[in-house]
């Protein structure tokens, strides 16, 4: 059953610890340097996504407990925390991907541009057309590179110059130069990092407002990871990016705001990234970041 299999997505977090980039381990133990050149304008930015007292249950198990947070526009918001703490669940609540899981139940309020996405009159399909998503493992379709990028345009019946959009999206995803001569070749021939950038190009081709990324670099090697990170920083100029990551170095490098989830599905701290990594309010967050707990 397709639906049944999708249930496993809820548990991908527990698997991902083993696939986590091994290079990140020693870095965590060192002091974490925050990219202080980036300007943090959290206070001034408009809020795009806001959750108020959001509870999520999988059957009897509660995955998220009363989450309150506000994601600012055109910035990178990172979600960090140990496995099974509900960061991916929160991400999937934003574009209602959790609807695909039969046993998932959401209570509370989650607004996108001021409208609660769990209202009865919201069409999740139309919502997902405004909020793109990139997954943990690169998942291009077994079609040509061109068809992969054009896929969203065709499902959304967009009346645009497809060739131009494909080229522009691939350029934005920093992939154009590598694939411009092989657009009709299968996307599966690309390397893992290229495939992930292709998935990002596919997501931005339909020009969403928000891009959700569920550990986009955890299945990639360090070089591919750094390319993806550069790309995310560029994307934040145009899009609101929400990224779930296990790699605290990564969160510190690329994000403007960080949310720390800890075991039990609670949001422990949500603040400016500098503040979280340099001077967190909560002792538990400090323990987690410095590797004493987690």
């Amino acid at each position: 059953m397709a639906n049944e299999n999708l249930n496993t997505t809820a548990s991908t977090e527990s698997q991902s610890t083993s696939t986590e980039d091994p290079t990140s381990e020693p870095l965590v133990e060192q002091s974490i340097s925050v990219d202080s050149e980036r300007s943090h304008t959290t206070a001034n930015a408009d809020t795009v996504i806001e959750s108020r007292n959001l509870d999520v249950y999988y059957g009897e198990t509660q995955a998220l407990q009363g989450i309150d947070l506000a994601i600012p526009e055109n910035q990178v918001t990172a979600m960090i925390g140990p496995s099974g703490c509900g960061k991916s669940t929160f991400l999937r609540c934003i574009n209602r991907m959790n609807d695909l899981i039969d046993i998932c139940r959401v209570e509370g309020e989650l607004t996108f541009n001021g409208k609660n996405v769990y209202d009865d009159d919201v069409d999740p399909i139309a919502l997902r057309r405004r909020i793109g998503m990139v997954f943990q493992h690169p998942n291009p379709f077994p079609k040509s590179i061109y068809d992969n990028v054009a896929y969203g345009l065709s499902v959304q019946n967009m009346d645009v110059d497809v060739d131009a959009v494909v080229e522009e999206s691939l350029k934005k995803a920093a992939l154009w130069d590598e694939v411009k001569d092989q657009l009709d070749k299968s996307a599966l021939n690309l390397s893992g990092g290229q495939q992930q950038r292709l998935c990002i190009a596919r997501a931005i081709a339909v020009d969403p407002e928000v891009i959700l990324m569920d550990e986009p670099a955890s299945a990639l090697d360090p070089i591919a990871t750094s390319k993806i990170e550069d790309l995310i920083e560029e994307l934040a100029e145009e899009y609101t990016v929400v990224i779930v990551t296990h790699n605290m170095q990564q969160a510190a490098r690329i994000s403007d705001t960080t949310a720390v989830f800890l075991t039990g599905g609670e949001l422990v701290e949500f603040d400016d990234t500098n503040k979280i990594f340099e001077n967190p309010d909560s002792q538990r967050v400090e323990d987690y970041i410095t590797g004493k707990f987690g």
Binding site: L6, I125, R129, R130, N139, S154, V155
Partner: peptide
């Protein structure tokens, strides 16, 4: 044969805002 199609492809298509019919037909 249908079960052998990876769920990640279905998810990718749903994430693009495809309807169930579009996912079934094109992916």
């Amino acid at each position: 044969a249908l079960r052998a199609v990876p769920d990640s492809h279905r998810e990718a298509a749903y994430g693009m805002g495809a309807t169930r019919w579009q996912v079934t037909r094109s992916v």
